[in-house]
Design a protein around this nucleic acid. Structure first.
Length: 197
DNA sequence: CAATGCGCACCCG
DNA sequence: CGGGTGCGCATTG
């Protein structure tokens, strides 16, 4: 077990990524707790310190924080880096926006800024001066709102959990319908409390 | 008790 | 369908 020395964030990121890989190989959720635990098996840091560096790694983009099934998970961005997103004329990113908002899982919604960051972390983005991601996302978000994929709240976009597309009879409806103001639903990410047992 | 292994249900594309 | 995820429980150290 190593002494708590002052190591670089790169080293921390490596440790964290290793921990995540290990936990995943055990078919378990790479939660904060498990990541802390895994790292503490080899390094003598307090879990708060580990969590702190995990947080930093997320901010740096070295680690991806994903909201899934009611809780946060962490993953290696490298694993999905081959996911390519081409930004070209007339491409529709509404689904990308929806997915990003859902996986970011921010209670008060996510800003375009946050969405952009998330997309860049989870994809290899191919863009050019004419068609940049930022613009495409702005349009995508707008379309996502119109499609009911997300709900806009000021500058933030929230995932619309109520949304369901039974069929393709939307074309006509979307054409004629245009609610002036979006209504607010007390949407919650249906957290399941598996406390007891 | 901690660590690891894994069947399988559950999304989501 | 096919691939990723991770719960819940079994197994091992």
């Amino acid at each position: 077990m190593c002494e708590p020395e002052d190591v670089s964030q790169e080293v921390w990121s490596r440790w964290i990524l290793d921990a995540i890989r290990k936990i995943r190989s055990q078919k378990q959720r790479p939660s904060v707790e498990r990541i802390c635990h895994a790292i503490r098996q080899h390094h003598n840091y307090h879990e708060d310190v580990v969590a702190e560096h995990l947080e930093a790694a997320v901010k740096l983009g070295a680690v991806l924080k994903v909201f899934n099934k009611g809780q946060s998970s962490y993953k290696d961005p490298g694993g999905l880096q081959n996911r390519t997103l081409r930004i070209e004329k007339g491409c529709d990113l509404s689904k990308v926006v929806g997915k990003a908002v859902r996986e970011l899982g921010e209670r008060d919604g996510s800003s375009l800024k946050a969405i952009e960051k998330y997309v860049r972390q989870s994809h290899t983005v191919l863009e050019n001066p004419d068609h940049d991601l930022k613009t495409a996302l702005r349009l995508g978000a707008k379309r996502a709102v119109n499609r009911g994929l997300v709900i806009q709240d000021g500058k933030a976009f929230k995932y619309n959990y109520i949304n369901q597309s039974p069929g393709r009879k939307r074309l006509e409806l979307a054409h004629l319908r245009k609610p002036p103001v979006e209504e607010f639903e007390m949407v919650q990410p249906r957290v399941s409390y598996a406390k007891d047992r």
